[in-house]
């Protein structure tokens, strides 16, 4: 994937950040509302960029969690949106 859609990335980050705990792939994919191959593309991109991490839980199930870089990216995104909308003047 060359350049992912920022809106999908925002939703991806939102889902994991707000859940607050590692999530199963299928749960994220369903909430994200994209097909599975597309979801995998996004997941791979985010793993490659160090935004999310795949971990194993106690039942040895693969779960996805945000890395500190992912959390920082989400905070920066929210701050930027707020600054942008506050800066709009007529």
């Amino acid at each position: 994937m060359e350049r992912p859609d920022l809106y999908v990335l925002a939703r991806f980050l939102d889902i994991i950040y707000r859940t607050g705990s590692p999530m199963k792939r299928t749960n994220i994919q369903m909430l994200l509302g994209v097909n599975y191959p597309r979801f995998i593309e996004y997941l791979d991109w985010m793993v490659d960029h160090g935004l999310v991490l795949e971990v194993l839980d106690e039942e040895k199930t693969e779960r996805i969690t945000l890395t500190p870089k992912g959390i920082d990216a989400y905070h920066r995104l929210v701050d930027w949106i707020k600054e942008t909308i506050e800066g709009v003047k007529l």
Binding site: Y7, A10, R11, D14, R18, L32, L77, V78, I81
Partner: peptide, 14 residues
Amino acid sequence: NGGVKLTANALAAA
């Protein structure tokens, strides 16, 4: 109310 599209919608609104 804290849903999955909040940030994406905020970005879209801006």
